[in-house]
Simulated assay, not measured.
Amino acid sequence: MSSVRPLDSRPALPPTTPPRQCQGCRQGEGSGIPISMAFQPILHLPGGGAPGVFAYEALVRGPEGEGAGSVLAQVNAKNRYAFDQACRVKAIELASSLGLPGTGALLSINFLPNAVYEPRACIRATLAAAARSQFPTGALMFEVTENERVEDPAHLLHILNSYRQMGFRTAIDDFGAGYSGLGLLAEFQPDVVKLDMGLVRDADTRPARATMLRHTAAMCRELGIAVVAEGVETLAELRVLQQAGVELFQGYLLARPGFEHLPKAALPPG
């Protein structure tokens, strides 16, 4: 896992000059969507080495554990900024209260690129939440999903580059299933690429998928990018991925998301 920068507690760099305040900040309105979080571990399974938790992904839920679909259905252009900010704050505060910083794992937070007006301005609530919760900003990773249509690709690249300059790790989620794919990867190399579960599913019985996974993993290694396989549900899928050189795994085989708690991840026998 040498392609992933080591954990540290260096704070993200604050803006050197106050950026122009965006409309969302000026309005200061909440999203009006009650939320909580579930956490799902990403397990590191090195060949011949001891397993460990690389990160916990924060997954939005309703206040009683309702699924992400019912929550995201309430997001629109008017409340998108406030919702994105609320998710970041809730993930950091809850993860800190659960003792995540003491595990040495990263906290991975999904963000909505279309909700970020100016990265250094829109990061203020994140930094404030981390300071209040004594959460090390060096342990934060931001995931952008390919499944959200990006209205301005150049702006997305600006966000990702700004986050890197501020000391955060970055990840492309659902790689291979959305709008960006290789085009985004050619312009920006994140710390982590998360392979879409559609590629992972039945890879042990679908030779074409196994071939795509093997070559994608090899490409990422050459670019210095760590690869996470999402949605792993069977030992057979995991073995094919390990043969392809993947060492980071997330899925029901290892642990289901834990609502408001950090579930333990374990490789089942077999």
Rank of each mutant, 00 (worst) to 15 (best):
Q21W: 11
Y56Q: 06
A68I: 04
V75N: 00
V116I: 14
A121N: 13
Q23C: 09
V60W: 01
N76Q: 10
G99C: 12
V116A: 01
C122M: 13
R20I: 14
P41D: 11
Y117S: 13
M37E: 04
Q21S: 12
A115Y: 01
P113K: 02
F111I: 08
C25A: 12
R124Q: 15
F83V: 00
G69I: 04
A125L: 11
Q27V: 12
C25F: 12
A82N: 04
L45Q: 06
G67K: 08
T103W: 07
E118M: 05
L107Y: 02
L45C: 09
G69D: 13
Q85S: 10
G47E: 13
G32H: 05
E64W: 05
E66M: 06
Q21A: 08
E64H: 14
P101E: 09
L59C: 05
R20A: 15
E29P: 04
P113I: 01
I33V: 15
S70T: 14
L107V: 06
P46M: 11
Q21R: 13
Y56L: 10
V71L: 05
F83W: 03
E93D: 09
L112K: 01
I35D: 02
V75P: 00
A68M: 09
N110T: 02
S108K: 09
E66G: 13
Y117D: 15
A82S: 06
N114K: 02
F39H: 00
F39K: 00
G62F: 06
C22I: 05
K78G: 08
G24K: 01
A91G: 02
T103I: 03
Y81Q: 06
I42H: 10
Q85C: 07
A82E: 08
P19S: 04
G99R: 07
G49M: 05
H44C: 07
K90H: 15
A95M: 03
A121D: 14
G32W: 11
K78H: 14
L94P: 00
Y56W: 06
A95Y: 07
I109E: 00
R61Y: 06
P101W: 03
D84K: 01
E29F: 08
R26Y: 13
A105L: 07
E66P: 02
